[in-house]
Simulated scan of single mutants.
Amino acid sequence: MIVAVDVFRDRLQKLRKIRAAMLARAGRLNLSSNESASFVRKTVMVKLNRNLPTSGHAIIIDGVVKTEFATRDGVEVGAWDLKRRFPMLEVRIYDAAARADQKVSAS
């Protein structure tokens, strides 16, 4: 009886490791550093390098330059439309001539 319980426990532990590895590969499981295991493949995130424009204007969404515009009117319309459609985003307008950005409000 004790041997059967040990075999069952070992098989259950192996199945849990396999399931965790499959979920981690699919991107549905995040293990903290103290929970990481050798059977889970580790990936390195590479930061996207998007420099600020030297001329014109740009829309910055959550700290990342997304779209560049030649005119102030075009960037304002685009930024306000984005903020209206997605109010949870932090939308900013960057002016290359002034080297400054301005937060866009929803109203």
Results as ranks from 00 to 15, higher is better:
5 V>A: 11
6 D>W: 09
7 V>S: 06
7 V>I: 13
7 V>W: 06
8 F>H: 09
8 F>Y: 04
9 R>N: 11
11 R>V: 09
12 L>I: 13
14 K>F: 04
15 L>E: 06
17 K>I: 06
17 K>R: 10
18 I>C: 06
18 I>M: 10
19 R>N: 09
19 R>W: 09
21 A>D: 03
21 A>H: 01
23 L>C: 03
24 A>Y: 00
24 A>T: 03
24 A>W: 01
25 R>E: 15
25 R>D: 15
26 A>P: 03
27 G>D: 03
28 R>I: 09
29 L>N: 00
29 L>H: 02
29 L>R: 00
31 L>A: 09
31 L>T: 08
31 L>F: 07
31 L>D: 01
32 S>C: 07
33 S>H: 11
33 S>V: 14
33 S>L: 13
34 N>M: 13
36 S>P: 01
36 S>Y: 10
36 S>C: 07
37 A>G: 08
38 S>E: 15
38 S>C: 10
39 F>T: 07
43 T>R: 15
44 V>C: 02
44 V>E: 15
44 V>K: 15
45 M>C: 07
46 V>P: 00
46 V>W: 03
46 V>F: 00
46 V>G: 04
46 V>L: 11
47 K>F: 03
47 K>W: 06
48 L>H: 08
48 L>A: 10
48 L>R: 13
49 N>H: 09
49 N>P: 01
50 R>P: 02
51 N>F: 05
51 N>H: 11
51 N>I: 04
51 N>E: 13
52 L>K: 01
53 P>I: 02
54 T>W: 04
54 T>L: 12
54 T>E: 06
55 S>H: 01
55 S>A: 00
56 G>M: 04
57 H>L: 00
58 A>P: 00
59 I>Q: 02
